[in-house]
Design a protein around this nucleic acid. Structure first.
Length: 834
RNA sequence: GGGCAAGUGGUGGAAUGGCAUACACGAAGGACUUAAAAUCCUUUGGCCGAAAGGCUAUGUGGGUUCGACUCCCACCUUGCCCACCA
């Protein structure tokens, strides 16, 4: 009796077909039932699934199938994040149409997903490159424009010279393009932005409601949004009718501000140096700085560069004249683009002041070295202390001074208490073909005109020549480019920018709820029923961008009145990476293992089991080829068990206690396993759930049953049935087959047989059966384990003390010594301190 | 530089204040076999010992506790994320 490869593959295909034909996993709104929305991050359709997908989707599938057996109305959809650069790259390389290439990949991908036996409702499948999908991207964009959330702005943007496109800050990693690793440069362009900053406060505040998210994801988002409280201070410029507003979170140090620094791009700079001897040098400096990409400019390793502008500002609190500089370490797009420099209490200012020989003054005293002088300072003093040299504020604690000076300046009219955010508006324009066209038209007469809703979608033209050169291919496509102005009818030009693909993935979970709806973005009743997502599962790499954008869209839809909740995802699980030989498995490293090869040899069930058993879901997983073999061995044992030892017997009303201690123990282990597996799945500890099923199997194997012992066979059958049901979410194909085998042994008529094991009820356990009559109590002397005792459960302390102290082994250690303490933890442990 | 996570046998891992090393993988030995595969059985942290048993071990060093892999402090290493944010 062997669960052979041929048999595995035949059985897996058979059940996959059955699930599909019978639509076992089709989800329909049912107000009578509690719903469960299980969602995994949809894949980019590269064609082949990799081990990361297998892990992600297997975790989700266990939860979806488990919840189904628990009686929930489960929605478990799948789709494809199908726009993006790889399709264009493929087009360039192989001279194919990106659309054809993508849909080809999707077909392949779907086959691979089906081969894994995932419980998707395929009727809800979608691809973001479907017209029916991206039409609604355009619709959302128009709504955002209506509400003032989509706007165009000329700005210096990160530009990848190789891809010839702009990149969001988030797509620039270590000064390089996140995809092609080319060095990013700065370029001035007219670009579309989404005003995500409008939702800063809500995006920050509502993080506190996400108690079922990993704390670190919440922290990362908090830091990314980056709220800081401070004061906008007004420095007037000597000899000019100008003011410099600086933002600081440290108003307590204002009396130590010995110079002011503007960002090189600050609009005031050119006015201040115009016609002065400094002008030429400053212009040259700015040109030099602006050529350097932003990320390189702010990378801490580089020496801070700057220039004196030749003029002075007035410190508003003491009237002191301080020099005005420009420097590359001050950024135009944070705060006000200008800072007051307090070199004694800010490390960046300290280094810059040392380098350029600028004045310093201590205004916060270190309580440890109260007499320290500027000359003695090796670095800025950034810790707490008492204010000195600070006029009326001398002597007070600097924490207190932050409040007081802010208040005081506000009263004096020299400053305003303010809040600044780190989060920037979201640059959405891409100079690419394979994305959602931004639905706008440029007319010489009417300006920038939105495409009317009834003309959506603005379709992507097909049969486009993609060369990878000369910017967006849409610029070279007259049929697309030339259009009549919707407003005046005169010849006009279409916007050729497409949307960043993060737009597409910011709302797909809503579309799944009514994926075939064509008159509306979604059906509000269905969304009201299915949303929010109960469990979202995906990689940690999306902790900031995708999750933040999805939260933003949800809040925007609520503003539109389309939704009545604030947050899209209740629980979030971020699964760990799959490693091979200690490194992340990736194509570029060439250390991938193809899931297909594993399936061809062992089947999907073994692969699923193996990847769940190898590590807890959040941890990194070190791939080990041998481990699949171990999973298969276990399945093979279960297979053999059912075939050789499941003999149906009628009477189930058998009491284990009448059959002796072995049967009682068998029943206890069965009940305990049900409890343990249930709790472990609920808390996503699949590895220990599986190990307890292995323990159950080991016990079943040892529980002997004679050929004619029908009563013990009843006990055995209970365990075998529990085993198959508990295992079903993990290894669905084999369990379906085994259930059929068991129904066959019972000779159940066809109409009473289960449609699918996934539609059966999850086993229940009996708390009473978990009780043990005797328990193992271990005895320690001075914390060291010395003896073990079998005791009646819940024995009183006196009795335990008597037994333990009489034991010769214990006597060996306590005889003749004073017993100072006797600690008894019921049913567990005794510790004698001598 | 900052933040977060992790560090336990040959390997993946288990135990979240109470028997450290569950469950597997691997390895060794045995049974079955002409033989091999598969399967089954036994052993398997280290050291000492013939055995009984003892000692020792959860990155390092301290601390709290009757008792610490678990809690606290400091440090080391690795990984991930952020990084001139005023």
């Amino acid at each position: 009796m062997n669960y052979s490869t041929e048999e595995i593959l035949r059985i897996e295909q058979k059940w996959q077909k059955h699930w599909e034909d019978q639509k076992v996993f089709r989800a329909r709104v049912d107000p009578e039932k509690e719903k469960y929305y299980c969602l995994e991050m949809f894949p980019y359709p590269s064609g082949k699934i990799h081990m990361g997908h297998v892990r992600n989707y297997t975790i989700a599938d266990v939860l979806a199938r488990y919840k189904l057996m628990r009686g929930f109305n489960v929605i478990h959809p799948m789709g494809y994040d199908a726009f993006g650069q790889p399709a264009e790259n493929a087009a360039i390389k192989r001279n194919v149409d990106p659309g054809e290439w993508t849909y080809g990949c999707i077909d392949q991908m779907r086959t691979e997903l089906k081969r894994m036996g995932f419980s998707y409702d395929w009727d809800r499948e979608l691809a973001t490159c479907d017209e029916e999908y991206y039409k609604w991207n355009q619709w959302i964009f128009l709504k955002m424009h209506e509400k003032g959330l989509a706007y165009k702005k000329a700005s210096a943007v990160n530009w990848c010279p190789s891809c010839e496109t702009t990149l969001a800050n988030e797509e620039v990693i270590n000064e390089q393009c996140w995809r092609c690793k080319t060095e990013v440069v700065q370029k001035d362009l007219d670009q579309w932005y989404l005003k995500i900053t409008e939702y800063c406060q809500a995006l920050l505040e509502d993080l506190d409601t996400l108690s079922n998210w990993p704390a670190r994801v919440v922290t990362m988002q908090k830091n990314w949004i980056g709220k800081s409280y401070g004061v906008d201070m007004r420095f007037s410029v000597k000899g000019f009718d100008e003011e410099i507003i600086v933002f600081t979170t440290r108003p307590d140090t204002i009396f130590g501000a010995t110079y002011v620094v503007l960002a090189p791009e600050h609009p005031l700079v050119s006015r201040l140096v115009s016609g002065t001897p400094q002008e030429a040098g400053v212009k040259e400096f700015i040109a030099r700085v602006s050529n350097v990409s932003k990320t390189l400019r702010v990378s801490g390793e580089k020496e801070k560069q700057g220039m004196f502008l030749g003029c002075h500002a007035i410190n508003p609190v003491n009237g002191e004249e301080v020099p005005i500089w420009i420097a590359d370490y001050v950024l135009m797009d944070y705060g006000t683009g200008a800072i007051m420099a307090v070199p004694t209490h800010d490390q960046r200012d300290f280094l810059f002041a040392k380098e350029h020989d600028l004045p310093m003054r201590i205004v916060i005293q270190d309580p440890q070295h109260p007499q320290q002088t500027v000359a003695q300072m090796q670095e800025a003093y950034v810790a707490q202390g008492q204010l000195v040299n600070s006029g009326p504020f001398d002597g007070i604690n600097n924490q207190e001074a932050i409040q007081k000076i802010g208040q005081w300046m506000q009263e004096q009219g020299t400053g305003t208490i303010s809040v600044h955010w780190r989060l920037r508006d979201w640059l959405i324009s891409r100079q690419r073909y394979w994305g959602t066209p931004i639905p706008f038209i440029y007319c010489d007469a009417c300006g920038t005109v939105p495409v009317p809703e009834d003309q959506l979608p603005v379709k992507l033209p097909s049969n486009i020549k993609i060369t990878g050169e000369g910017g967006s291919p849409l610029n070279h496509c007259p049929e697309f480019l030339n259009v009549a102005c919707p407003s005046c009818g005169k010849p006009a030009k279409r916007e050729t920018d497409t949307m960043a693909t993060f737009f597409d993935s910011s709302w797909y979970f809503l579309r799944y709820c009514s994926a075939r709806e064509d008159a509306r973005i979604f059906n509000p009743e269905e969304v009201a029923y299915w949303m929010r997502v109960d469990q979202y599962i995906g990689g940690i790499e999306h902790a900031i961008l995708h999750l933040l954008y999805s939260r933003f869209f949800t809040k925007f839809f609520k503003t539109l009145g389309l939704l009545d909740f604030d947050e899209p995802f209740d629980k979030l699980l971020t699964q760990g990476m799959v490693l091979k030989d200690g490194e992340v498995m990736s194509k570029s490293r060439g250390n991938t293992v193809d899931p297909d090869d594993v399936i061809a040899r062992y089947g999907a069930d073994s692969l699923r089991l193996c990847i769940l058993f190898a590590a807890p879901p959040e941890d990194q997983l070190e791939w080990n080829d041998g481990a699949v073999d171990g999973s298969w061995k276990f399945l093979n044992r279960v297979w053999t068990l059912v075939h050789t030892r499941y003999i149906f017997v009628e009477d189930e009303h058998v009491n284990a206690e009448d059959l002796g201690p072995e049967s009682v123990a068998m029943e206890r282990i069965r009940n305990f396993t049900i409890k343990k597996v249930t709790e472990d799945i609920e808390s996503c500890k699949f590895n220990t759930a599986i190990s307890s099923l292995m323990i159950l199997l080991n016990h079943i194997d040892k529980y002997g049953v004679d050929a004619d012992d029908a009563d013990r066979q009843v006990i055995l059958n209970r365990s075998i049935r529990a085993m198959v049901l508990l295992l079903a979410p993990f290894v669905p194909h084999m369990c379906e087959e085994l259930w059929k085998v068991m129904e066959g042994r019972q000779e159940l008529p066809l109409e009473r047989q289960a449609l699918s094991i996934a539609r059966l009820t999850w086993p229940r356990y009996d708390e009473r059966a978990l009780k043990q009559d005797t328990v193992l109590v271990v005895a320690q002397v001075n914390g060291k384990l010395r003896a073990k005792f079998d005791m009646d459960a819940d024995s009183p302390e006196d009795k335990v003390k008597e037994i333990v102290l009489q034991d010769p082994k214990i006597q060996q250690y306590v005889a003749g010594k004073e017993i100072r303490k006797f600690i008894y933890i019921k049913n567990k442990l005794v510790n004698i301190v001598v």
